[in-house]
Design a protein around this nucleic acid. Structure first.
Length: 267
DNA sequence: ATGGTTGGACGCCAA
């Protein structure tokens, strides 16, 4: 089974590109982040003829996560237990955002995750990000404790560069989110709960990234960040026999600022 | 070249 994750940065703008990606690589299950649409706006009609079922949660023009599968799509769950809420505006009650979607596809429990950005070190959004990751650690740890042999994949845009090699120049990030000790500790907490990065061993750095900012010619300058990850439970990780980052997808007109991350599982 | 991308709610916020 071939599983991929991709922060697509608007599914409506890039539906054709996503369809071409699915066909080109024979992807069975694709987790998407930043679909940037409501459920009723998701272009399911592009993917149904190709044989993919779609699960999506999107409340507005922000966030939005989906799972496309041609090997079954069961037990769809929106959000995880304990997931924090957020409101950017004073006077507006915090509510759960469209940042987590779970489904069982071909026997694998897949979670499409869009971790909050954090914005700046002083922004309340960073505290939200840390609380969100802590709640995920607790929830995912519980799933694994209940079913130690379950193949579970936590995939998506984690908005964290766990290692110095995961950015092109650490000196640029001295006062930035994504590399702070608190964020890295929150990421490590999920790893310590039993979920391993299954891609890094097969796509080692330095200089291997999944995201390049649209500005400052970051992509042609090869100035990127590794912030999109496939974290697998022991049963999942033990079945991984291939992985790559599709850097070609970042090229050309109409590219997302993220590249897809692809993992192959043995049957 | 007095800017520098892109996307979505079309005026600015978010990344």
């Amino acid at each position: 089974m071939r599983l991929a994750t991709w922060n697509v940065n608007s599914i409506r703008t890039r539906a054709d590109r996503v369809a071409a990606f699915l066909e080109r690589h024979g992807v069975d299950v694709l987790a998407l982040q930043e679909t940037k649409c409501r459920d009723d706006q998701f272009p399911e009609m592009v993917f149904a003829p190709l044989g993919y079922e779609v699960a999506h949660v999107g409340h507005s023009q922000w966030n939005g996560v989906a799972i496309l599968s041609r090997v079954g799509l069961d037990d769809v769950t929106t959000g995880f237990p304990g997931m924090p809420s957020w409101s950017s505006k004073e006077g507006v009650d915090p509510a759960p955002e469209a940042r987590a979607l779970g489904a069982t596809c071909g026997g694998v429990r897949v979670w499409s995750l869009y971790v909050p950005n954090g914005r700046t070190l002083a922004d309340p959004h960073l505290q939200y990000k840390l609380e969100w990751l802590e709640a995920l650690r607790v929830a995912a740890g519980g799933w694994l404790a209940a079913e130690p042999e379950a193949p579970i994949a936590l995939v998506g845009d984690w908005n964290i560069a766990p290692q110095d090699d995961d950015v092109w120049d650490m000196s640029v990030f001295t006062h930035s989110t994504h590399v702070s000790p608190a964020e890295r500790a929150a990421f490590q907490g999920v790893v310590d709960a039993g979920f391993a990065d299954v891609v890094r061993p097969l796509a080692p750095g330095p200089g291997v990234y999944t995201y390049w900012d649209y500005t400052q010619l970051r992509f042609p300058r090869r100035e990127g960040m590794r912030i999109d990850f496939v974290l697998g439970s022991p049963a999942f990780a033990g079945r991984v026999d291939g992985a790559f980052i599709d850097r070609e997808e970042r090229k050309g007109k109409g590219a997302s600022d993220h590249a897809p991350v692809v993992v192959d599982l043995t049957p």
